[in-house]
């Protein structure tokens, strides 16, 4: 029998995910994998291209006219154009991070000033790093960003355990803007996350990283829905962090 997948048994899971035959738990597991691993994302995207054209058989239906208004309302498009409205006001949880840890804030400000005054306009900083501190004052994770390769390595330091069925999700918060999902991370293992070009463009010393606790598979809304447990400012990477993204050469 023609079974070319013998060399790649995992590939079939992405096909089953795209086709939609997996149960909720198995779907969530594939989603996690696809979010965290660019190879899995590419394999899943390949199955989308193979199978989803079948949707062309389904005839169009006119959605009710008020649906667009509902979408605009859900996105607060018609709210006053104050970037600190809406979502920010709901997040009193974030408060501690601005006012609760004075020393960290001072350090971050100092780093910011140094970066702002000494950073030449070009070329861009090739590596950046963030120490993501938890509410308990412990370092939860460290993140090192390799701009050239458009990836981020997130290493757990002493993260608080996460209860079953939940997963930590990493967010980028550009100044004055809503959080952008970066990817799901682990409390145990280092994760490498691929960064889209638009995400790379928004990394910088005025952006922050934050971790919220989300349902398995990540936030269902595209915005943080669970408790924010850790956050950190982005700065230039210390030399010690670069070992992660530039492993020593090994002889073959």
């Amino acid at each position: 029998m023609n079974t070319p997948a013998d060399d790649d048994p995992g590939d079939l899971r992405y096909a089953e995910y795209v086709l939609g035959v997996l149960d909720a738990d198995a779907r969530a597991a594939v989603e996690r994998e696809v979010t965290a691993d660019p190879h899995a994302a590419a394999a899943e995207a390949h199955w989308r291209r193979r199978l989803l054209p079948l949707a062309e058989e389904i005839g169009p239906e006119t959605p009710p006219p008020q649906l667009w208004a509902r979408i605009r309302a859900a996105l607060e498009f018609d709210a006053p154009a104050d970037t600190r409205g809406g979502w920010w006001e709901n997040l009193r949880l974030w408060h501690w991070l601005t006012f609760g840890s004075g020393a960290l804030l001072a350090a971050a400000c100092a780093a910011l000033v140094v970066l702002a005054t000494h950073r030449p306009p070009t070329p861009p900083i090739p590596y950046m790093a963030a120490t993501i501190m938890q509410t308990d004052g412990q370092v939860g994770w460290t993140a090192t960003m390799d701009i050239g390769k458009a990836r981020m390595i997130v290493v757990p330091a002493a993260p608080q355990p996460v209860r079953a069925g939940r997963t930590p999700e990493l967010w980028l918060i550009p100044p004055g803007a809503r959080p952008i999902a970066v990817g799901l991370i682990s409390t145990r293992a280092p994760m490498t996350l691929a960064l889209s070009a638009s995400l790379v463009a928004r990394l910088g010393p005025t952006a922050r990283l934050a971790v919220s606790i989300e349902p398995r598979g990540g936030s269902p809304t595209g915005q943080p829905t669970g408790a924010v447990v850790a956050t950190g400012a982005i700065g230039a990477a210390p030399a010690s962090a670069l070992r992660l993204v530039r492993p020593p050469q090994r002889s073959a």
Binding site: A45, P63, I71, L75, R178, S196, S198, G222
Partner: peptide, 21 residues
């Protein structure tokens, strides 16, 4: 459909044209 388009607005920056249309 509403949830999906809200998600499209929020996640469109993750769209990678090299992985598909």
């Amino acid at each position: 459909l509403q949830e999906a388009f809200v998600s499209v607005w929020r996640r469109a920056n993750h769209y990678n044209p090299s992985l598909g249309g």
